[in-house]
Every structure is written in structure tokens, then in C-alpha cells.
Amino acid sequence: MNFLTYLINGISLGSVYAIIALGYTMVYGIAKMLNFAHGDVIMIGCYVVFLAMSRSGLPALPSVALAVVACTLLGITVEKIAYKPLRRATPLAVLITAIGVSYFLQNMALLLFGADTKSFSPVVNVPALKLADGALTISGTTIVTVAACIVIMIGLSLFVKRTKAGQAMLAVSEDKDAAQLMGVNVNATISLTFAIGSGLAAIAGVLFCSAYPTLTPYTGSMPGIKAFTAAVFGGIGSIPGALIGGILLGVIEIFGRAYISSQLSDAIVFAVLIVVLLVKPTGLLGRQVHEKV
């Protein structure tokens, strides 16, 4: 039964990574940049929920909705102020800017909310599921996390496949100029991608903090890096890749912690990434990048 419990916890943690990884992978696919500030958007989302619930006494769902709105706006604003002026700059300049935005958000949170650790009260109020005469318990947070991940994945796939805006996103991710020739507003599409990724980051953050309820200005950075790893693991730019990479990473992390060493679990996660990249540099589902002549 222990094995099953670990597996379920791994899938739950992996679902959070997968939702965060979507933000990395979509932004990379469309804007061809690594938004290293993505993890810190998660942290901001958590603070919004924390303040809304503990200070303003708002119920859980409206608080989460507020966080989604706040993070969506934050994502659009960051893109507009920090990244859009660099559209034709070298990738290195954009990368350094993203790291700068990350530090900016962390320090802004430090200034606004203080350095002390806030204890995040779980937002999920779903009873735990007891299976096999109580030998196996699945917590409410786990159920909601996995369900949220499934719903988001299906919703996003349908959005990309079935809607005009989704098709425009795919077109921009493949060829910006050709997409513009179709009448697609490339800048608006990039903005939309940041909006969706950041909104999802808020949801992921709330789920993460419900499972690991300590909140500091640096809360977002570790899940952010792990989710980035998951996106690369699955094949950056690929939506199903983010799901598979996220889940695998979560399971490896929990198994590593349970069976090998709790101190080494992070090292194991990154070691697996290195091995995958050595064997398949584009990640599990990544497509071959063709150099355009």
C-alpha cells in the first residue's frame, strides 16, 4: 500500500508541475523564450489567495478566481513592459531580462508581504477518499489537483485545436511572419499566451501551497525550476509533453524521496533530466527543430 500511496502523491505533485510546465512550454512555443519569472507568478498568486482568505475573509473559490485574474494581468503586464521591447533582441538578452523580472517579483513580494513564512491554509475542502478498508487514503487536495490537471489539459487541447485563437497560436508558434500574412495579430497572440500561462500558474500555485502549506517570497522558485525541468523533459513546446514530463517528474521525486533519500530527491530529479537530454535532446515528445535556411 505504501507504494500506491507514493505513486498517488507523485501523480498529485506531478499534476502541479504539469500545470506550471504548460506556462513554460506555451510561452516557449510561441515567443521562443524561457520565462524564468513564471515560477514567481505562482508565488504572487499564492499571496493573493492568502491575503484574500485570511485578511478579507473571502471564501476559497472567489479567492482563487481573484488570484487567477491578478496573475493573468501580471503576466500580460510583464510581457508588455519587459519582453515586448525585446522582440527582436538576442535570446540571451531576453533570458537575462526574465531572470531580472524573477528577482524583481521576489523582492517586490519581500517588500509588500515581508520575509516571514506565512502558513497557507488549504483551500481545498473536499473529503479524503478512503479505499481498501482505510489502508489507502487519497486526500481531497490530491483529488482536486489531479482533476484540475485533467480538466486543464483537455480544455487547453480543445482550445488550441478547435478555436480560431488556438489555431492562431499554433500558426504563430510555427512561423510568425506567415501567421501575420494570414491576418493574425502576432503581438496579441503572444499576450494571450502569457495571459493563459499566468492564469494557470495561479491555479497551480494554490494547489501546490495546499499540499505544501508554507508561503514565502521564494516559494515559487523551486516548483518553477522543477516545472521547467518537466517541460524540457517532456519536450519543450509540446502540451502533451508538459503533462507527461510533469507527472513523471513528480513520481520520480516522490519515489526518490521515499526509497532512496529525502535529501537527494531533487538531485535525482535533475540527474534524470540530464540522462534524458543525453539520450533524446529534444525531450520525450519534443519535435526535431529544423534550422531554417
Partner: peptide, 13 residues
């Protein structure tokens, strides 16, 4: 409308 040089079709679609 513009048919660009090198076709530029969306290969993955």
C-alpha cells in the same frame, strides 16, 4: 494576400 517565398505553409497543421 501574399503567397510568400518558400511557401511557408504551417507544417504541423
Amino acid at each position: 494576400a501574399h503567397v510568400p517565398e518558400g511557401r511557408r505553409v504551417f507544417a504541423e497543421l
